[in-house]
Amino acid sequence: MPLVDPVTMSSSIAKGAAAQAVQSSPITKGNESQQQQQHPIQLRQTPLAQSARHALPALIAAVFLIRFDSLVNKPDPAPTMKTSLPVVAALQLAYAMICLPVAGSAGSQNAKASSSRKPRLGEKKSKSGGGGGGDGPNGYVAAVLSLVLTTFVTPFLYIVMILFGAPFLTHGAHTFLCAAHLAVLVFFPLFYAHGVDSAAWAAVGSFRAPFDETFGGLVGGVVGGWLGAVPIPLDWDREWQKWPVTVLCGIYGGYFLGRILGGTVLFGKRF
């Protein structure tokens, strides 16, 4: 057929969209080229950071294990989840501020500038010490903002859990707390390290980011939570089968595994 017709959806939309893209945000365009070169997040090299890197996850795990008994054996797991949430949040906050480079700092910066700025990394770090912030952006501000973002993301995670089949009319607090734990554990460090950098988030969201502790934690937490739903239907009538204990266990287990693997053997690798 020699006759070619221009009216197809893909072509017309492609045109419009292309125009849109050009119009709306040249920044996006720039970011897209960056996206290919997204770099893994290097933890701070300070001795404090290096020891906190191992100590804090161990602490969170300890908190989880200590609370596990009351989580399972109390008739209602919600209060336990509620009381342990601030503890976990505090530990994650400490982890972020001690170990992670704050969003916009050299450690979390990528490609474009990293080669030129790398030599300076050491100097700056020694200057700022273990205090909190990084170079440039203030660590405390970033931490507060990340907490706010984490709060915002929780309702969305809650909706996602509902969509996966979590109870809609009942167990609202349980599901919401489970979403909050997921947010604090997995999303908080990402917010701290990436801020609202859309390119970085696009890479993370499409699972194209390189593995590091934060991204590994995300993959692990999400996959763990997904697998955590598997034992729910079994008719074993165990206490630990009640909603959302298994999912919570999956999130924590997956998060630790993902974080450890992401920080070590998988570091820098991509899907």
Binding site: S10, I13, A14, A17, Q20, T28, G205, S206
Partner: peptide, 14 residues
Amino acid sequence: LAAIRLPNLADRYL
């Protein structure tokens, strides 16, 4: 999530 990779913005959102 996979759609985030689509290069075209309109395609991506749709």
